[in-house]
């Protein structure tokens, strides 16, 4: 992603801390999918995978969203179970990982469920399963979304983003 976008995301992270920032990134990602024309989209704050998206071709994805500044992400047994559950409903399980570092973008990894195990997973490893075509469309959309919603998010945090999700027709489950 562009340096500017990275700078804005880092400022959000510094402002809200790593945990809330993860949720902010998740909502920004949902808005980015919306911008790409995915519908319906469900964003969850509590149980289940973080985001459900359905593409124009009807292809369904269940996204477990992870952000980090390090080289790996942590997958809990619950995360894996959530992905399994969504797979049962016809959603392809996808791990969406964003490393906050120069030149990095969202990696959308369609990892086979039988190859997933709980623990730390190197983001580098996820590259083997990346959905490059979706990622290539997603990257510029995400940049635009961050640019558009940075000020509002900086001011009102997740509350602002939840409003935006509702405005764009994204269903929010959880609080």
């Amino acid at each position: 992603m562009r340096m500017r976008t990275l700078g804005l995301l880092r400022e959000l992270r510094n402002r809200f801390g790593p945990g809330p920032f993860g949720k902010i990134a998740q909502k920004l990602l949902a808005l980015s999918f919306r911008e790409l024309g995915y519908a319906p989209i469900v964003e969850r704050s509590v149980e289940g995978v973080d985001i459900d998206v359905v593409g124009e071709t009807g292809k369904k994805f269940g996204l477990e969203v992870k952000t980090t500044e390090g080289l790996s992400i942590g997958l809990s047994p619950n995360n894996i179970q959530d992905l399994r559950d969504r797979a049962k409903d016809g959603y392809s399980p996808v791990i969406a990982a964003l490393r906050l570092a120069v030149f990095e973008n969202w990696i959308l990894a369609k990892v086979p469920l039988d190859e997933l195990s709980a623990g730390q997973v190197l983001i580098e490893r996820l590259r083997a399963y990346r959905m490059s075509d979706v990622e290539n469309l997603l990257a510029p959309a995400f940049e635009r979304v961050v640019e558009e919603h940075y000020q509002g998010t900086l001011k009102n945090g997740q509350r602002y983003l939840s409003e935006q999700l509702r405005k764009t027709g994204i269903e929010i489950r959880g609080f």
Partner: peptide
């Protein structure tokens, strides 16, 4: 100048590096 740093990511060499990273990741798996 900042933009020039950003351009690194658009260079053929960097793309090649990215392809290598992907290739290595696939190979490792």
């Amino acid at each position: 100048k900042i933009g020039r740093i950003e351009k690194i990511a658009e260079s053929d060499e960097y793309r090649e590096l990215e392809n290598i990273r992907d290739g290595v990741a696939v190979f490792v798996v």
